[in-house]
Amino acid sequence: MNAAATSDRVALVTGGNRGIGRAIAERLVRDGYRVAVTARSGEGPEGTLTVRADVTDGASLDAAVSEIEGELGPITTVVANAGITKDTLLMRMGDDDFDAVVDTNLGGTFRTVKRAIKSMIKARRGRIILISSVSGLLGVAGQANYSASKAGLVGFARAVTRELGGRGITANVVAPGFIESDMTAELDDETQKAYRKQIPAGRYGTGDEVAGVVSWLAGDDAAYVSGAVIPVDGGLGMGH
């Protein structure tokens, strides 16, 4: 663990071994949190505790939370980031393709947050941050399963806010747009150009830009912000 992480702030980031989740974990380490990441394979960034867990498996999350709190202390912040895609047009989408994405992205968030809030309720403070997508607000062709799962996070966060807001716990949603990643780097030049044309900012975002918003929501300055959806999309969704 990072020797600088000496505060009582303990963050759990699901899927924190790569992509946006990894950028978030790195930022929270720099902010002084004790950070744990869940991963099915691979390792989280330097300064984090990596635990093996699958967000579709409640028993593995029970074990992960026990391990994290045993080593780092009670969880005060949870960032539900783990997710998958199985893109195809609706007419071609199999039942399993729909169910797997919704069970991971929405069901996995439910399973993670349910377990992470126990310590927050006792402490009467906490931060719940859900990583959604512009796809869940704007809608993207070929992503009926993904869009549905990411839109569901908004209702989930708002229901949680109603339940736990009086206990000093906030629940908010971050909705990234097109973010620089291995996946976007593999797109051909014409496809990348077409995507950028849709974005008022004229560029992809970075994982660090998403992480900066998460950092703010996790901090004291956002104590009176709950049930909000914050887009990090260069203007693509325009508030949808």
Rank of each mutant, 00 (worst) to 15 (best):
N2F: 11
A3P: 15
A3S: 14
A5L: 07
T6I: 14
T6D: 12
D8P: 04
R9S: 04
A11C: 02
G16Q: 12
G21A: 06
R27M: 06
L28T: 02
V29Q: 05
D31H: 00
G32F: 01
Y33V: 01
Y33E: 02
V35L: 03
A36H: 09
V37L: 11
V37H: 03
S41K: 13
G42T: 11
G42I: 10
P45H: 09
G47A: 12
T48W: 03
T50F: 06
D54V: 14
V55D: 13
G58F: 12
A59L: 13
L61K: 12
A63K: 13
V65Q: 09
G70T: 07
G70F: 09
G73F: 07
G73K: 04
I75W: 03
V78F: 04
N81I: 00
N81Q: 03
G83V: 07
I84F: 06
T85C: 11
K86A: 15
D87T: 13
L89T: 15
L90W: 11
M91W: 07
M91R: 14
R92L: 14
M93L: 15
D95M: 09
A100G: 00
V101P: 10
V101D: 12
N105K: 08
F110Q: 09
T112L: 05
T112A: 08
T112C: 08
V113Y: 08
R115K: 13
R115A: 13
A116Q: 09
I117K: 01
K118C: 01
K118N: 05
M120E: 02
A123T: 04
R124K: 15
I128F: 00
I128M: 01
I131A: 05
S133L: 10
V134R: 00
S135V: 12
L138V: 14
A141G: 15
Q143R: 12
A148N: 10
K150T: 08
F156D: 07
F156K: 05
A159V: 14
T161C: 08
L164V: 11
L164D: 00
I169R: 01
V173C: 04
V174T: 02
A175C: 09
F178E: 01
D182I: 08
M183C: 00
M183T: 05
T184P: 05
A185G: 03
D188V: 13
D189F: 00
T191I: 14
K193Y: 02
Q198M: 15
Y204F: 15
G205S: 04
V210S: 07
V210F: 01
S215C: 06
W216M: 11
L217T: 01
L217R: 01
A218G: 09
A222Q: 01
A223P: 00
S226C: 03
S226Y: 05
G227I: 07
G234Q: 02
G234N: 10
L236F: 11
G239K: 00
H240N: 09
